[in-house]
Lab assay of single mutants.
Amino acid sequence: WKVTVKGVEYTFDNPEEAKKFAEELAKKKGGQIHYKDGEFQVH
């Protein structure tokens, strides 16, 4: 499971962890999460 933040990729074994990480980042940066092709992208 991948989380991509401004072109930087983070990989997680667990989808729950990936989702949590993406949500935290989106909150911090005031961005939005897009889920696409099996990965979370924070913009």
Results as ranks from 00 to 15, higher is better:
residue 1 W to P: 05
residue 1 W to D: 03
residue 1 W to E: 03
residue 2 K to Y: 05
residue 2 K to I: 13
residue 2 K to N: 03
residue 2 K to W: 05
residue 3 V to T: 02
residue 3 V to Q: 00
residue 3 V to Y: 01
residue 4 T to M: 06
residue 4 T to R: 08
residue 4 T to F: 04
residue 4 T to H: 04
residue 4 T to L: 08
residue 4 T to V: 14
residue 4 T to P: 00
residue 5 V to G: 03
residue 5 V to Y: 15
residue 5 V to A: 11
residue 6 K to V: 10
residue 6 K to D: 15
residue 6 K to C: 15
residue 6 K to M: 15
residue 6 K to W: 13
residue 6 K to H: 15
residue 6 K to Q: 14
residue 6 K to E: 15
residue 7 G to L: 02
residue 7 G to Q: 02
residue 7 G to C: 08
residue 8 V to A: 11
residue 8 V to D: 07
residue 9 E to G: 02
residue 9 E to F: 06
residue 9 E to A: 09
residue 9 E to N: 03
residue 9 E to R: 04
residue 10 Y to E: 01
residue 11 T to G: 04
residue 11 T to E: 10
residue 11 T to M: 14
residue 12 F to D: 00
residue 12 F to K: 00
residue 12 F to H: 00
residue 12 F to R: 00
residue 12 F to M: 00
residue 13 D to N: 11
residue 13 D to V: 06
residue 13 D to Q: 07
residue 14 N to V: 02
residue 14 N to D: 10
residue 14 N to A: 05
residue 14 N to L: 05
residue 15 P to C: 15
residue 15 P to N: 04
residue 16 E to I: 12
residue 16 E to D: 13
residue 16 E to P: 01
residue 16 E to N: 10
residue 16 E to A: 11
residue 16 E to Q: 10
residue 17 E to I: 06
residue 17 E to T: 08
residue 17 E to F: 04
residue 18 A to V: 01
residue 18 A to C: 02
residue 19 K to M: 12
residue 19 K to F: 13
residue 19 K to D: 02
residue 19 K to S: 07
residue 19 K to T: 05
residue 19 K to V: 07
residue 20 K to H: 11
residue 20 K to L: 10
residue 20 K to S: 09
residue 21 F to G: 00
residue 21 F to P: 00
residue 21 F to R: 01
residue 21 F to Q: 01
residue 22 A to P: 00
residue 22 A to F: 04
residue 23 E to C: 14
residue 23 E to Y: 09
residue 24 E to A: 10
residue 24 E to P: 00
residue 24 E to R: 08
residue 24 E to Y: 10
residue 24 E to T: 09
residue 24 E to L: 09
residue 25 L to W: 11
residue 25 L to I: 14
residue 25 L to F: 09
residue 25 L to C: 15
residue 26 A to R: 07
residue 26 A to F: 03
residue 26 A to W: 04
residue 27 K to V: 09
residue 27 K to L: 10
residue 28 K to A: 14
residue 28 K to V: 12
residue 28 K to P: 06
residue 29 K to D: 15
residue 29 K to G: 14
residue 30 G to T: 05
residue 30 G to H: 09
residue 30 G to A: 07
residue 30 G to C: 13
residue 30 G to E: 06
residue 30 G to N: 12
residue 30 G to D: 08
residue 31 G to C: 14
residue 31 G to F: 12
residue 32 Q to V: 14
residue 32 Q to C: 15
residue 32 Q to E: 13
residue 32 Q to H: 15
residue 32 Q to L: 10
residue 33 I to V: 14
residue 33 I to C: 10
residue 33 I to F: 06
residue 34 H to Q: 09
residue 34 H to P: 02
residue 34 H to E: 12
residue 35 Y to R: 06
residue 35 Y to V: 10
residue 35 Y to K: 07
residue 35 Y to H: 07
residue 35 Y to Q: 09
residue 36 K to Q: 12
residue 36 K to E: 10
residue 36 K to G: 10
residue 36 K to C: 13
residue 36 K to P: 06
residue 36 K to A: 13
residue 37 D to V: 01
residue 37 D to G: 01
residue 37 D to C: 09
residue 38 G to F: 11
residue 39 E to H: 09
residue 39 E to W: 08
residue 39 E to V: 12
residue 39 E to Q: 07
residue 40 F to V: 05
residue 40 F to M: 06
residue 40 F to E: 04
residue 40 F to Q: 03
residue 41 Q to I: 14
residue 41 Q to P: 06
residue 41 Q to T: 12
residue 41 Q to G: 04
residue 41 Q to H: 14
residue 41 Q to D: 06
residue 42 V to P: 06
residue 42 V to I: 14
residue 42 V to N: 03
residue 43 H to Y: 08
residue 43 H to I: 15
residue 43 H to N: 11
residue 43 H to G: 09
residue 43 H to V: 15
